[in-house]
Computed example of a mutant assay.
Amino acid sequence: MKNVQKQVPSLLLIITLVGFPQISESIFTPVLPALSRALQVSASQIQLTMSSYFVAFAIGVLVWGQLADYWGRRPALLAGISIYLIGNIGLFASTNFLWLISFRLVQAFGASAGSVVTQTIMRESFSGVTGAKIFAKTSAAMALSPALGPLIGGLVQSWLGYRHVFSTLIGLAVVVLMYCGWRLPETLELTVLTSRPRQSAVLRRLGHDPIVWVYGGLIGGINGILFSYYAEAPFIFETHFGFTAWQYGLLGLVLAAASLLGALMVTQLLNHYRPEQLVLAGLGLSVLASVGLIVVAGLNQAGWMLVFIFLAFLGLNITLPNALNRALVGYEAIMGSASGWFSLAYYLLVSVLTYLMSWLHHGSIVTLPSYLLAISLAMLGAYYWLMKVKLN
């Protein structure tokens, strides 16, 4: 392979690459009730399109993470986006639930390259406070893009029908593939590209690192909360409160505002506080907001539920960029493989948490807030333990 000159990709390209997998997940949410009716399956079954996405996604991040070390970042991303395009075409052509789930897995497997390879590129291109600020901006995109997904999906369903949500995803795949092919540089240096790390050694090192475990738990827990919300929220706001699909889609702006404000706050607060302090503050806010959410859900107050949902996700979006930036410090020489195994673990956690939400679904609007509180408390406890271990 010819020597390649390492370059830094643009922030816009990074945001595009981390954003499209998240949109692909959440754009489904407004059409879940319609899909349930059209395919004649239960609400719990149709929610499997959410949790199953992360099973294939978790497998994909491991595969693409290793291929990014062996092939290079650019070839791995282009191959992943191409498979993602095939999955979207299959979704559009699906006529039954089995085919829908099958191509959902193909879609997720391809989309996972956009997550793991892009994060690998970011970690090897930016470091320190600059890296934390870049991760804050891209974390906003990671939270903003699934927030925009329901709005896009709801509008497309209202105007054109649910099947054209899939044709929208086909168009998205084509645009991302062309943009990536045009603007993505190769960031992997030749000295790293020609050395293949032993996966057993990588896995053993990660497995004995408590920092990796706890930060992986935070990242997986936050994304688990996010996509559990997207799995359950349509049945709260559309079925229980009677919102239309496009009205529900507009609620994504609440999460979008939380993600943007969280990114802005992190960018500014990092000039005055350590990342560890921001993580604790963000998790604390999420716990308090979850308690408030349980109270107002019990009172059947849709408006106040949105207020506390905003506060809960604001706390999570303060936590997430710091966790992403700090998780794999010291793994730069094996970043692709380390990112792959690390992402496999936390996306499996996302899948489990999203599946548990579908399993717990029984029509009560208090279930989601209680679930959010339980996960937030677990994350806060784990991080507090890590801080004590590091101090000792």
Rank of each mutant, 00 (worst) to 15 (best):
S376P: 08
V279G: 11
Q107F: 07
E25Y: 06
L356R: 02
L226T: 09
G249V: 08
V291Q: 01
T239K: 14
K133C: 13
V156M: 01
F28P: 00
T191Y: 15
V41D: 09
Y70G: 04
L306C: 11
V41A: 02
K133N: 09
T29I: 04
E189G: 09
R326V: 09
S358V: 06
Y331N: 03
V175Y: 11
I46G: 01
P9N: 09
L251P: 01
T187N: 13
T168H: 02
S370K: 05
R326M: 13
L344A: 12
G292E: 02
L380S: 14
Y162C: 03
L77W: 05
E186P: 03
G128V: 14
M379D: 12
G221Y: 07
L288Q: 03
A374V: 08
M357E: 13
L377I: 12
I375R: 03
L91E: 01
G65A: 07
L177C: 10
Q40Y: 10
L288M: 05
Y215R: 06
V389A: 11
N223Y: 14
Q247R: 09
G80Q: 07
L348N: 03
Y53R: 03
L172A: 05
L360W: 13
I294E: 01
V117H: 11
M50Q: 10
G110V: 00
I222F: 07
D69C: 04
F54K: 03
M142S: 03
P21F: 00
I81F: 10
L373F: 06
I89C: 00
A136E: 06
T319H: 12
